[in-house]
Nucleic acid binder design. Structure first.
Lengths: 259, 259
DNA sequence: CAGTGGTCTAGACCACAGT
DNA sequence: CTGTGGTCTAGACCACTGC
């Protein structure tokens, strides 16, 4: 009798608490970056057990409203979703303007973008990448991994893989900053005129590494986008594997109705 | 001391149990459609409390390996992901062959497809839909909601919205089956030559309704795909709102590198 | 060290499905 | 009715963070 369980107003208590916190976030009572009250505080405030507030916070994490850091606390995430535009994104005109794809998008969205290079160097091609590049598995490739941040918080980690025979004749690809227009501009300068990009989108829950790299909660969904860049000769000259925090993105594609 | 907690071999017990079940699923020991042992059985088998096996099963649901039904049990899901191909999907050639987009894809994937019409009729356009159709909010539109199944299990629910002035002159749109080539073929016959489709993809956790419609677990991620079909005059003649069980799909888009 | 989140237990009661 | 999953409690201990 000291346990009303599910009879709170139809819905479970943990959802009721989650709802309450959502409201506080949306009204600005809990602004972006703010600390959400600790578990003990919530336990006292709502008069429930730890497991219950825990489920509530889990709910908020799943929705992408907060992120939690062990030992520190849980915090309100910032920023609304960024938009990526497909037909726009790889326009040669953006390159002419001296912008890489990412900066071009972010500019449009009015977000302060930052790119942090994590690794540039040779690597044995992983299974899946080798297949996509039509190389025997384990072949040496150039890998470029970078982390993208919007307004300071990491949202996206991308790794480009380029066959070694192409990379070695394109020294700019080894630089942290490959120059105006990004690596696609460099590849085209070297005679690899691009014909099309093929993007594959899938959704899964984050692995432990991704969770920490993108500082999200456990079990958060991520979007995995694998893009192949194909040149006029039909060869795949680059594969880019991107992991995004799912709640932060909306992808847009335009498809011509003419065959 | 009767509680070893996290010291099981580095990882939490619930992950250990989840891992164990995953293995049984992948080896076929628990084939598609099979019942996963009930909570009480798992409690006994692993010698843990209910909360622990619960978290394990939650993990499996998040990964999309099982689905659970209150009062009945939890079951292994079937089918690998279906592929959708963008440049393929809306080819006029598929319509000529008398197939709607969905059947065309599924054929390719060797999956037994089924479409179940849930609703066809007029509706006041919801906020977001009205905006996309450039109509004042609350205007009457024709709505067509259908559920798509692969090998018997629901994977996708789509609702098409068509402005009333277009719908009323196209009687086939009110039929359960709009005929060969689907509604896009009918729209083109009525003079609305399509120019392009614009698709927006986002990911979020399922609402309660979606959870039951697609028979997935609570908190599973879904892909929301909103497509606008634009005709040669620049008018959006249809908006289609699709919810998919995220773990069941891989979306593919081809983007031309030429501006 | 104290404070935070993360895992676990043992036992209770509720809600849904099928006999 | 029994058996299933769903919610909740009270209290315990572990692990990470920062003073």
């Amino acid at each position: 009798m000291e346990n009303p369980t599910t009879t709170d107003g139809g819905r479970p208590r943990y959802l009721r608490i989650a709802q309450d916190l959502k409201l506080q976030i949306h009204t600005g009572e809990l602004p972006a970056g703010a600390r959400v009250p600790s578990e003990s505080e919530l336990i006292e405030r709502y008069g429930v057990a730890q497991g219950t507030v825990r489920k509530a916070v889990t709910e908020l994490r799943a929705v992408g409203l907060v992120e939690t850091h062990h030992g520190k606390g849980t915090f309100v995430r910032s920023r609304p979703p960024v938009r990526r535009k497909s037909s726009d994104r790889f326009r040669r005109s953006h390159r002419a303007a001296g912008k890489a794809a990412y900066l071009a998008e972010s500019d449009q969205a009015g977000v302060e973008a930052e790119v942090r290079v994590r690794f540039v160097g040779s690597l044995d091609a992983p299974e899946d990448i080798a297949r996509r590049l039509c190389l025997p598995r384990g072949t040496k490739v150039l890998a470029r991994r970078r982390l993208y941040l919007s307004d300071g918080t990491p949202t996206e980690e991308a790794t480009s893989y380029i066959p070694w025979d192409i990379a070695k004749e394109t020294p700019e690809l080894f630089a942290e900053n490959p120059g105006p227009g990004g690596i696609y501009a460099r590849l085209e300068e070297r005679g690899h005129q691009l014909a099309e990009y093929i993007e594959e989108i899938s959704v899964r829950v984050a692995t432990k590494e991704e969770t920490s790299a993108l500082s999200m909660g456990t079990g958060s969904p991520v979007i995995q986008l694998v893009r192949e860049a194909v040149d006029k000769s039909g060869r795949t000259v680059e594969v880019c594997d991107t992991i995004m925090s799912a709640s932060q993105f909306v992808l847009e594609y335009r498809i011509s109705a003419d065959d």
